[in-house]
Design a protein around this nucleic acid. Structure first.
Lengths: 215, 215, 215, 215
DNA sequence: TATGAATGAGAGTTCATTCAT
DNA sequence: TATGAATGAACTCTCATTCAT
């Protein structure tokens, strides 16, 4: 949703964001120069300053828009997946896996370069980071309350689950051994095991939802 | 014991390595300037170039020595922990947790800045990275063969376990809620759950070994 | 006329080249810093890097453009000076003297700093150096074949003649005892003596052509 | 003479001078670093400062000792070669050719790097440079007075002769086409032609003096 | 007679950024 | 909607030099 009209009306801006995403992702924020980005976008050096006040602002925009895409879709998915924390977790993990794979570069930037924001901008991004974490934490804690997840360490378990999901953009390759759908399968499996979901109903009944990533 | 004699005989070099570790860890390789490092070490800018041919070489030394410390201790620990893959995994996870906590900054550099090495140096570090990954993979796969770990996805499970262990240096704080010993406990617990260790003997019988980190 | 449009359209670049010429000429390539050059040009340090990829490239440009000016004019002059090797040599020596005096700084750079070019760039400059040497060698050898120059050592004689012509930029001063026209006279005289031009017609009939240097 | 006892008693100093000569000759004074020289000499960086107060002083020593070798031998040769300016010139040119070939590197440094000396030291070297120039100028002017050299431009002719002799170290190679003895022959020939020595006795009667260079 | 350790100054180069057009 | 020209600050790295040993 985000950026649609913008993409149509301001192709330069979109090209720069895409270029910044790719460049920050591969070289890191500090290792990527404005020149690198402009060249990747096929624009001039000064073009970036027409669309963004500064390099920091480009990074902030990138991070926030990625967070917003993530949060928007995640909320929608949770609302569609019923009351049971197990089905919610199932849907959520599957979405995270899809998102981290489809938005690999954006996720890398978000996960590794957020701390390069200056304090003022960091605060803005941090709010979304927290919202994002609370989302999954909420689901798990509800599942624990409901008695569906029996792990004795819910807080740390959440962190562990999030950790292995977030490691996806660091190693995933399109030409790899496993398809996104297979990875969805495995990562939900791992999450349920780690949270010690109750055996009989632990595995979500339905099949994998290999649908396109919601963005 | 690595670096003992060096620390005594070449204090400048050791100070620089410590400063580089701290600075690379907090600012990233590209965000850390030689001046930052020298200042942190209390030496002049040029001192770094007396001991290291280049910034890249300082990074490589840092990464390799951290890998070597890790690998050296990990091998020793595996040899001391019997034949059973379960006790080996228990010892290994506990060691990794201790190591990632005790060598938080070195681990951050190793985990996040290795890819900043130029191709030639990257190859040198990559060899250790592979050795390190094979170590834990070996234990898990043996456990699967022995029938102790029943996960249907051993390869990906290893990655997941490694991922959540490696996330420790990203958030751990000395003034945090949990002690290293408690974290050892939780992370081994998670690992065994995720690998679906057989129930009756799954949890290692003995208590946590809160001993100092072996390095 | 080289550089006219460039001079008009890119005054910064022209100012930098002039400054580089003067600075390399007086301090040598290695003794001249980028800061020296920029200051001489009245521009900032970084301006040089807007117009030239590197200090080496500025040197290369300087050397090649001087060579090209020299070769362009020299060819034109040879074509205007008839078939007789004696009149050709006369015109050529007179031109060289004028050129070395008028382009004193460029010539100093070309003659003394070419060997500071890195191998790759050296090759580019060397091609022009060879062309330049072949030009005068051709005239002399033709004169020897025609029987006009009777030196028993034509090859070395060429080198000697070129040597004393090229020494001009090392000592010539505008406030010196001799005018460029007088120097033309003497150096052609020397060249004809050294090559042992046949007596009766040895001295070129016409008067010295004190015209401006062709460039 | 020079350096004999010194060479025996202070091998480090001699090694450094040789290394400095070679390095300054190939890279130029400003292009040669103290490290380059020390490495070439197989000594440590600081060794140079044990023997020489500074890089400038090493250059001065090199230039002066080369000048002194040259002047000492040249004076001796002039005294042995009779009263006739022609035989004196013959002997002198032959010596210069031999010296420039045998002391190729020292000559290159002397001829091209003297101007890198700071004002104070430049004065010291300049005195020898002038003495050196006066030497050959004296011979030529005497020859002109005696009526043996009939060039109408004695002053400039001297410069021309010196120029082509001094160009020797710039191109001479041991594996070249011509032997030192042959070059002696040609360069004296050129000098006599250029100075317009009287025909009948112009060529020095005796054979070439193939003796080793006097140093 | 030499060297290892260290440094301040300065090298070439790149940086993010500005501004007139 | 963009860009070419330019810059000050900072970068990595090398320099000549010093000094305790």
């Amino acid at each position: 949703m985000a950026g649609t009209s913008e993409t149509r009306t301001r192709p330069g801006r979109a090209a720069l964001l895409t270029a910044a995403r790719r460049t920050f992702s591969s070289k890191g924020y500090d290792g990527a120069s404005i020149r690198d980005i402009a060249q990747e976008a096929g624009l001039s050096l000064s073009a970036l300053y027409y669309y963004f006040p500064s390099k920091q602002d480009a990074l902030l925009e990138l991070i926030c828009s990625t967070f917003d895409d993530f949060l928007g879709s995640a909320h929608a998915i949770l609302q569609e997946s019923g009351e049971d924390a197990r089905s919610q977790l199932d849907a959520l993990i599957r979405f995270i896996v899809r998102f981290r794979i489809a938005n690999r570069e954006g996720s890398r930037v978000l996960l590794r370069e957020t701390e390069r924001l200056d304090p003022e901008r960091l605060e803005i991004a941090r709010a979304r980071q927290i919202a994002s974490n609370e989302l999954i934490k909420g689901v798990v804690l509800r599942g624990v309350e409901q008695g569906h997840f029996r792990t004795p360490y819910p807080e740390e378990a959440v962190r562990a689950v999030v950790s292995f999901c977030n490691s996806l953009p660091l190693w995933y390759r399109e030409d790899g051994r496993l398809s996104p759908a297979q990875l969805e399968e495995r990562y939900t499996h791992f999450a349920f095991r780690l949270l010690e979901a109750e055996p009989e109903t632990s595995c979500r009944p339905g099949a994998a939802s290999p649908g396109a990533v919601r963005t």
